[in-house]
């Protein structure tokens, strides 16, 4: 188990390094562009003379060769210094941290909504495959998977806010502001996960040891809860990890639809205003969180699946 975790952590460090190179290279691909943006921010114009441009480029380190620039930048990032926003002039790290609560709230609410609907519904379907509720839920989940979250969000606003006047249209704040966004973000995840819980449980229920448990006279309830479910939930867990990808992507869109001041919305703002340091910071920050949560998922595997705990790495190879 220890070697497994060590391997995961090494991979994590490597991935983060790779992402930092990738992020930095993207910005590096624009020679002169950074200096021009700095000029606009400082003086409000960018028609600098060649000499002024050269001075500015030297000042912000843009004339150095790639490896040196990268090392300089990485050193600063390691100390938590992500630079300053072109638009507000405030530290990028502070800008991001100010937006974290709104995003975290949304992501956690959506995740729990998805998990708490998917597991019971999936079990219900798997217990009676082909029943009317199984057919109904499977059709519903097909719709849920194909539903674009930006459209779902707009429709929900239209119905619950504009027509029925039950919930606020946009903004962040209390619980009432969270209901529609969390549902919008969680619905797709719930749909995918329900299908997965069902498929995975059906597969486990068809195995010999379940037949054995039934043969020796255990009740259906005990077979399900004590024997089948634990094994069926391992692949579900994997997919909840994979869903993280959709969760992050969905956050960006849902925050935009509902006007929540979160990290995703910050990223869209940074792109719209060509605020490169801010954009770079957000990308790194999100990659960091993404990798961190993935590691947590891997660690929790070792508790769920003894096969990993005792050597046989079943990870991502």
């Amino acid at each position: 188990m220890f070697t497994y975790l060590l391997r995961r952590i090494c991979l994590l460090v490597f991935v983060l390094w790779g992402v930092s190179v990738l992020t930095f290279t993207l910005m590096y691909l624009l020679p002169g562009e950074r200096a021009r943006l700095v000029a606009i921010y400082r003086w409000g114009y960018d028609d600098l003379s060649a000499k002024e441009l050269a001075t500015l480029r030297r000042e912000i380190g843009e004339d150095l060769p790639f490896p040196q620039q990268y090392a300089w930048w990485l050193g600063r990032v390691a100390r938590g210094d992500l630079g300053y926003s072109f638009v507000t002039g405030r530290p990028v790290a502070a800008e991001i941290l100010a937006r974290v609560p709104a995003t975290l709230e949304l992501a956690v609410a959506a995740f729990f909504f998805a998990a708490l609907t998917a597991v019971p519904l999936g079990i219900a379907c798997a217990r009676r495959p082909g029943s009317w509720w199984d057919n109904l839920l499977m059709t519903g989940s097909l719709i849920g998977v194909a539903m674009p979250n930006f459209w779902l969000g707009l429709l929900l606003i239209l119905i619950f806010s504009l027509t029925l006047d039950l919930l606020p249209v946009a903004g962040s704040g209390g619980l009432a502001h969270l209901v529609l966004p969390a549902f919008t973000l969680g619905a797709g995840m719930a749909a995918v996960s329900t299908r997965l819980v069902r498929a995975s449980l059906l597969e486990v229920l068809a195995q010999d040891y379940i037949t054995m448990a039934r043969t020796k006279g255990l009740g259906e309830g005990e077979v399900l809860w004590r024997h089948a479910l634990r094994n069926a939930l391992i692949p579900v867990f994997t997919v909840l990890g994979l869903q993280l990808n959709h969760l992050v992507g969905g956050t960006v869109i849902v925050e935009n639809v509902f006007g929540r001041a979160g990290v995703g919305q910050l990223m869209v703002e940074a792109i719209a205003s060509r605020d490169l340091p801010l954009l770079q910071g957000v990308v790194l920050f999100l990659a960091f969180c993404f990798a961190g949560v993935n590691l947590l998922v891997d660690i929790s595997y070792t508790f769920l699946d003894p096969r990993i705990r005792y050597g046989g790495a079943k990870g991502n190879e």
Partner: peptide
């Protein structure tokens, strides 16, 4: 290389 690409959420 695929590990690195998978370390970044697609939309990001």
């Amino acid at each position: 290389l695929t590990d690195i690409f998978m370390g970044l959420p697609n939309i990001v």
